[in-house]
Each structure stands twice: as C-alpha cells, then as structure tokens.
Design a protein around this nucleic acid. Sequence first.
DNA 1: ACCTGAACACCGTTCAAGT
DNA 2: ACCTGAACACCGTTCAAGT
Lengths: 194, 194
Amino acid sequence: MSPEHNPARHDRESVARTALALLDEVGLADLSMRRIAGRLDVQPSALYWHFSSKQELLADLADRITAIIHGTGAGVLTTARSIRDALFAHRDGAELVLSTYALRLGASPAQSALARALENEGATDVEQRAVAILHFILGHATLVQQRMHADSHGALLGGDENDVTAGLDRVFDLGVTALTGAISAAATPPRDRA
Amino acid sequence: MSPEHNPARHDRESVARTALALLDEVGLADLSMRRIAGRLDVQPSALYWHFSSKQELLADLADRITAIIHGTGAGVLTTARSIRDALFAHRDGAELVLSTYALRLGASPAQSALARALENEGATDVEQRAVAILHFILGHATLVQQRMHADSHGALLGGDENDVTAGLDRVFDLGVTALTGAISAAATPPRDRA
DNA sequence: ACCTGAACACCGTTCAAGT
DNA sequence: ACCTGAACACCGTTCAAGT
C-alpha cells in the first residue's frame, strides 16, 4: 500500500508509443481509440485528455515515423531510400504519413533532406524536384506496402503468380534517379554498388 | 395504381451511380453504406444484395473513375494529365483509386495508356517507367487533392499564406517529364503549346 | 430478384463527475 | 493532472423473412 499505486496514469508520450506499437500489430484500419484505450487499461474518453482528436494522435504518429530521417550529406538516392525505409518500418506507415502530410506545407524533414541532397549533387529546380520525389516516394511506398499486406493475407486478384513485387525496387531506383535529373557532372562521382 | 409501383428497386448500376454522386457531395470519409442506402430509400442491408462488401463497392467506383482514360496516341505528358484530371473529377478520387489500386496488378487502363505513350515517344524501360509515373501521379494527386479540400475548409497549419498550391502544376509537369526520360530524338517532335 | 427488420459487434466524441 | 461512467450519434455486416 504505497501512497500511489493507481496503475493507469499516462502522458502524451506513453499514449503515442502504445498507439504506434498497436499500429504494427493490427494495422491502420483496426487502430481505434477504443482499442488503444484498452491496451492502456483506460477508458476511451481518457485519451481525449492527451489528444484532442484521433486525427491529432495519428498526426503525432506520422511525425514519429518520419522523425528518423537524418539530413546527413548522403546522395539523393540514399536519402530517398532512407525515407522509404522509415515508412516501411511500421505497418501502414506510408498510408498514415500520406494521409497526414497534406497539411504539412513543405515543412517535413523528408522534404528538407531531399532538397539538401539535391543541392549537393548540383541539381536544378531543387525545391520542385524535392517535392516531386517526396510525392513519388509516398505514392510508391503506399502502393507497395498495401500490396505486401494483401499478398501475405492471401487473395490475389491479378495475373502472374510469384514475383509480382520483384521489379518494384528497380522502379523505385529508376524513379528517384530520373527525378533527380541530369547530374552536373562536377558533383559526387557515381559509385557502382552491386 | 399501375401493376408495379414499389419505388425502390435497384441494380448494381444505379447503386454505383448514386454512390459516386454522393461521394462528390460528402467526401470519402462520410460515404457510408447507411448514407448510400438512405439516398436510395432503402435499408442498408439491401446494398449487400448488389455488392458483397463496401470494399467491393469502392473498387467499382474506382473503376468508374479511371474508365475515362483513353489510350489515344497522345504524348506521355498529355496522357499523365488526363489520368490526373480523371482523379480530380471526383471528390477524393485520387485517394479512392490509390487505396484500391494495390490489388490491380498492372492491369489498370492508366498503366496501359502510359506504357503506349512511352513507347510512341521511344522511351527506354517502358514498363518500369509506366509504373513509376503512375505511382507519382497517384501520390501527387492524392496530396494535392487533400490540400485543396483542407484549404477550402479553412484551417491551414503551415507557413506562407496565399499561393501554396501554385507551383504544384509545375511540379507535376517536371515530374512526369523527368520520369519519361531522355527522348530518343527520332520520336514525335516536341510541339510548343502556350 | 430484390428488399425489410432486427440484431451484433463495433466506432469517435462529449461531458459531468470523481480523485 | 488525469481518469471514470454514461451517453449520443453513428458504423459494416449478417440473416431470417417477406414480396
């Protein structure tokens, strides 16, 4: 009988962390406020002390997912891959970030990192290309991630059987490289990587 | 008192058409089976005679939205714009198609039209570029359309005020052109269009 | 062939009240 | 500062039964 032993007492951080863990378990479609509350041993209404709406909670999760993106002096392709992999790191991460990013006007760490990388490589139209690459990454990653989930859960509806997602890595690299544009030939020399 | 005058008798077609009209009025988030049923003067359960699930109904709507895409001998940029505009033609059209298209493995009319246009222009890696351009269009259109809706409904959260969506048309053209790749110079000569 | 009526197992959100 | 309890206005889906 210590002075306080009421077990369920949370803050913004613990709610968000629990929600993110639950997202990986059940997916975005089944991530309800009531389920999150249940996992925290709390009534659903308790969540509204920490977040004013579900949308605000989801936006917070999207920020956490994209917070990993580091603007090191890496190349455009490496930066693009790290953004994609940050989205892939959580179930339905791409869809979550896509559906939340319309409100973030150019202020995302992803877009800044891409713009810096483009500048390092001597690209033209840096800002516009950064936006284009970000839109490509979000569209591509959302489709690929949805397909991955559909594949693992059984029913396919389309044609060929086995390696449907095989060429998608090449599509990603081709897309990012094309959107980067002609390199000014004075920038970082291309290193072949098998 | 004609022999039949029971007013509510529908088929797949009339249900889908009503649902598509309702989508334009209320948006994807508020497009519920119960609301569609209400518009048809029918109980919600009646919809399940025509469609086995809401997901199947939404997939049908996505097909209708993209059915407009015509594989005429137009250029890649023109084809890409017509796909984008087909998505823009209905409220939340891009989001709907994006969330439904992961299951259509390369069988979409949009992808076929892009592949034909790329071939006409003498591009390399036709299939991969068609997929990349389609992913770019879907990501871009989804983000732009969400922003358009958010702008019209008031609250912005980001920086500058007025022409935030101004450069996005240029981003689209730059993106599609870059993804098309270097033209083989023997194909259709570029016509300047003001 | 197409629909009703009733039920089941859920949702997000608000708000007074508790501690 | 953080949570409960109860309510409000909704969801998608199933299924026996009607016509």
